[in-house]
């Protein structure tokens, strides 16, 4: 069987600065009330003394290659589309929460009707050739949605240069670019 190009949602943690715009743009796009959070920006504190800093990581569905939620679902309500998107057929969900216990990322959400729903990578937009709402809006351009190959290329372009420039060492040695 020909495997379609796998699409992923990639978060660039070096860029996410914790504004949380992805959370409300997602609510609006998916018409969600308070309750189910298809994505959530998490914060983690690292370092000590001078290296202390905040880190941010939006956690939408990871659309895992071998998705534990799909395996765990006893009713077959979850499946992985050919392009890699993990989708829920809410009509088949009985609300047993097995997917939530299985998901290492805490992604499955339960709306007031008790059935699971989660990030769909905005398939309705993908299928029309536009980016998921969070990726399209991210003010820090930290959310990418593309094939692994393309994302790899974008990241190399982003960070390749920095390596050669060096943050500031050479300039401090008197070779100011001034």
């Amino acid at each position: 069987m020909e495997v379609r190009q796998q699409r992923i949602l990639y978060i660039d943690p070096a860029r996410c600065m914790g504004c949380r715009a992805c959370e409300t743009v997602c609510k609006l796009e998916n018409d969600l009330p308070a309750g189910p959070r298809y994505t959530m920006v998490t914060e983690a504190e690292t370092g000590e003394g001078e290296t202390e800093k905040l880190n941010f990581l939006p956690v939408p569905c990871q659309h895992c290659g071998d998705a534990p939620c799909v395996r765990a679902c006893p009713t077959g309500a979850l499946h992985k589309r050919e392009d890699g998107v993990v989708l829920t057929d809410r009509r088949k969900c009985v609300g047993c929460h097995e997917c939530l216990w299985a998901c290492p990322f805490g992604v499955p959400q339960f709306a007031s009707d008790g059935r699971m729903s989660k990030c769909t990578m905005c398939v309705h937009r993908l299928d029309e050739g536009t980016l998921p709402a969070c990726a399209a809006n991210c003010p820090a351009e930290a959310i990418l949605c593309d094939t692994v190959e393309n994302i790899s290329r974008i990241l190399r372009e982003r960070y390749g240069k920095t390596v050669f420039c060096g943050p500031f060492a050479d300039r401090l040695n008197g070779e100011a670019a001034r």
Binding site: M40, G106, Q109
Partner: peptide
């Protein structure tokens, strides 16, 4: 609550990701 459990798991994941005592 589901929301609590979900948020805790997400934060724990971020902790592991960034290596903050995770």
């Amino acid at each position: 609550e589901d929301a609590e459990g979900s948020a805790r798991r997400r934060s724990a994941y971020a902790g592991r990701f960034f290596g903050s005592g995770g």
